[in-house]
Amino acid sequence: MWLQCLSAATFALATLGAGAQATSASALLHHKAPAFSHRALSGDTVSLDAYKGKVILLNFWATWCGPCRVELPRFAQWQRELGAKGFQAVAVSMDDSPAPVRAALKRKPLPFPVLMGDAKLAESYGGVLGLPVTFLIARDGTIWHRFEGETNLDAMHAAILALLAQPPHAKR
């Protein structure tokens, strides 16, 4: 009997912490994007601050994620088309090891940095507990949009164009 009570109590305690990640993910909107500096698979160090003044698409993905594989070619296309206008995509792989990512990039190279994510980076962005997740960051470093799961890419493209049209210190 006491074992049953203990089990129920422990489970209830665990419940108290639930939902914190979901809250922090939505709380990031309209706040400064968390800074990070990671080594990309190319060997270069990628620092978010280095892209200040650009509209950044920060995408969390994985090689085993079907919807991610649909999105990446579109992001590559946008990088080629909009790069000169101040657009910069950065992809963070949530694969557990770099080997499948390197193999995927060998088959289909991407025209933007790809780095390996970790739990710390994911948690700083509110937790990445499903893929894909994409953040759009305005020229002033503020997060304006968060897309999760299978997304309407035309809507995302329109949001990017709107951010590119904004002056650097535009207020929402």
């Binding site: 489970f11 993910a25 799961g149």
Partner: peptide, 18 residues
Amino acid sequence: ANNFGEDWVAKGYPTQTA
């Protein structure tokens, strides 16, 4: 249906970290 974050964590079910 969608992912662990949306269908378990955001709905308030209990969680642990590693």
